[in-house]
């Protein structure tokens, strides 16, 4: 696609970023103060979050208006597509860091600490033998149970896989202009997403209380919550986005051949799906 047309839409001014930036700064600064034990950071953080949220909503509102007003030609559409694709790539790399940590711990650091490296094990850790999952050689007194794969996580896997299917169904319906099917498909997807999150919330409570599995129960707990937690946040964001798209479908914003907003949300959802499969295999099963 290298055809630049004279009508590429360049908004001539953009207020929302500058409006939102102080919000982000306040959010982060407030959070920092709060973490440092300054209670007054908390309201600042909330204020920042609200400003950031307003920015996000207003910004997307503008984009939606422009889109509906037909200001975006094919080339703009392509820019959005590519932009979204790169963004998802960056998200993949973000999860990559945590998966990397998982592999490193399992393949290298745990074995080194737990016997493979003779000197380390003998002189520093009383020659304890470690096997995954573990709380680490210095936390042997913490007792926890790992999260099994076969109950809740399996159900959640099925839910996410189904949601991927319903979303694809909605997409096909979109292309064929069956609005009702689109709405049903999307609504189902959002519902499945919400169910997933609820089950995960339940799983967390269960793990925390019944299994004594916490963030501070060593490397297994750390990785478990970090990976599933960031994934969970992405599920919530994805479901919210799909919900907004659902409303836009109901409002009739999309046509059979112009519905990038829908597709972007769908890509995102599939990405979240795939990450889950990775999690399921490497965190729960193996």
């Amino acid at each position: 696609m290298s055809l630049a047309q004279g009508t590429y839409y360049v908004p001539h001014e953009s207020r929302w970023p500058v409006f939102g930036i102080p919000g982000i700064a306040l959010l982060m600064a407030g959070f920092s103060v709060y973490l440092n034990g300054g209670g007054w950071g908390f309201p600042i953080m909330i204020l920042g979050a609200v400003i950031t949220l307003i920015m996000t909503v207003m910004w997307f509102r503008d984009v939606v208006h422009e889109s509906v007003a037909g200001k975006y030609n094919e080339q703009v559409d392509m820019s959005f597509r590519q932009g979204m694709a790169w963004f998802i790539f960056s998200e993949v790399m973000f999860f990559g860091a945590f998966f990397g940590a998982l592999f490193y711990a399992r393949v290298l650091s745990i074995p080194w600490l737990g016997g493979d490296d003779a000197a380390t094990s003998q002189f520093l850790w009383d020659s304890v033998l470690l096997s995954w999952p573990t709380a680490g050689p210095g936390m042997l007194d913490v007792d926890f149970t790992a999260m099994g794969a076969w109950a809740l996580p399996t159900i959640n896997t099925l839910i996410l896989l189904t949601s991927g299917a319903t979303l694809t169904w909605a997409h096909h319906a979109m292309k064929e202009n069956h609005r009702k099917q689109v709405i049903i498909g999307l609504a189902l997807t959002v519902l499945l997403g919400a169910t997933f999150s609820s089950i995960q919330a339940y799983e967390y409570v269960y793990a925390w209380e019944e299994l004594s599995l916490r963030m501070d129960t060593g490397i297994y707990g750390s990785l478990f919550y970090m990976l599933t937690g960031f994934h969970g946040v992405h599920v919530i964001i994805g479901a919210l986005t799909l919900f907004v798209i659902l409303i836009r479908v109901i409002k009739g914003h999309f046509t059979a051949d112009d519905h990038f907003g829908f597709e972007a949300a769908a890509w995102y959802w599939h990405f979240v799906d795939v990450v889950w499969l990775g999690l399921f295999v490497f965190v729960y099963v193996i």
Partner: peptide
């Protein structure tokens, strides 16, 4: 999270490195 939420990514005692 290692600093404020008790994780052990970079702490050998907890199995990290």
């Amino acid at each position: 999270t290692d600093q404020y939420f008790g994780t052990s990514f970079f702490n050998a005692a907890g199995g990290g490195d």
